[in-house]
């Protein structure tokens, strides 16, 4: 059995319906656990209690980028293999990604105020996220503006491809433009980790929790989209009969 069979809406609905309760359960355990664990870590000697914003900021920022990558992959699958569920999944993911971006920006501002002494700084990473948010908004606006779902899926797919390239370009352009305040990558597998395990384990838990939250929301929203398409199709058929 190939993975492409899940592109069949009936099969997708059946499988996702079976998986969904487990996902909801796992999210309900993992996300609060990670956040509470993160809340209870000792304060950082330099940043104090504000360091705890990290447990919201880092996972949401990570998901903001990962969701766009997922949309890019889903758009490619739609454009190349014409699997309708894939296009709907990309559509369903966009608002989640936009919210993750906003969370990352807002928590970043709240964290930046005590740390850098400013709510907003045109730091390359912040700027990149703002631009990413613009791409999310444009993508969602284009989906909702086009009536024919097939054309909408095609056009947003092309827009996602071009947007990905330019989001990437903008990121490097922003680095060129302003060197920035952000610390380098905080978690790395290289020797000499810069983050203590006191922080890293709850952070990993939060990341997993955010990831599970995304997958759960994505499945729910894709199922809603499929049902919406199905009602529209049935309505059209009824009007014609």
């Amino acid at each position: 059995m190939s993975i492409w069979e899940y592109a069949n809406p009936v099969k997708f609905m059946r499988t996702s319906g079976a998986v969904l309760p487990w996902l909801v359960g796992a999210t309900a355990i993992c996300l609060p656990a990670g956040l509470i664990w993160g809340w209870s870590v000792p304060e950082d000697y330099k940043q104090g209690a504000t360091v705890k914003i990290m447990f919201l900021h880092v996972p949401s920022a990570m998901m903001a980028i990962n969701i766009w990558v997922m949309m890019l992959v889903a758009s490619l699958i739609w454009l190349i293999r014409r699997h309708h569920v894939s296009a709907l999944a990309a559509r369903a993911a966009a608002p989640i990604g936009a919210v993750m971006t906003v969370v990352a920006l807002v928590t970043g501002a709240v964290w930046g105020q005590p740390t850098w002494g400013t709510w907003w700084e045109w730091d390359p990473r912040l700027t990149s996220f703002l631009i990413l948010l613009l791409f999310y908004l444009g993508y969602m606006a284009l989906w909702s503006a086009i009536e024919n779902p097939d054309s909408a899926a095609d056009l947003t797919g092309v827009m996602c491809l071009v947007g990905s390239v330019f989001a990437f370009l903008s990121r490097y352009a922003a680095h060129f433009w302003n060197q920035g305040l952000h610390q380098g990558s905080t978690i790395s597998v290289a020797p000499g980790d810069r983050i203590s395990s006191v922080y890293s384990y709850p952070l990993y838990t939060c990341m997993l929790g955010f990831f599970l939250l995304f997958v759960t929301l994505l499945l729910i929203r894709t199922r809603t989209e499929i049902r919406r398409r199905r009602t529209a199709a049935l309505l059209a058929r009824e009007m014609r009969a």
Binding site: P9, H84, P149, D150, A153, I226, R229, R230, A232, A233, L234, A236, R237
Partner: peptide
């Protein structure tokens, strides 16, 4: 060929 046919 189209969304309506897939989901109809």
């Amino acid at each position: 060929a189209s969304f309506d046919e897939v989901f109809g």
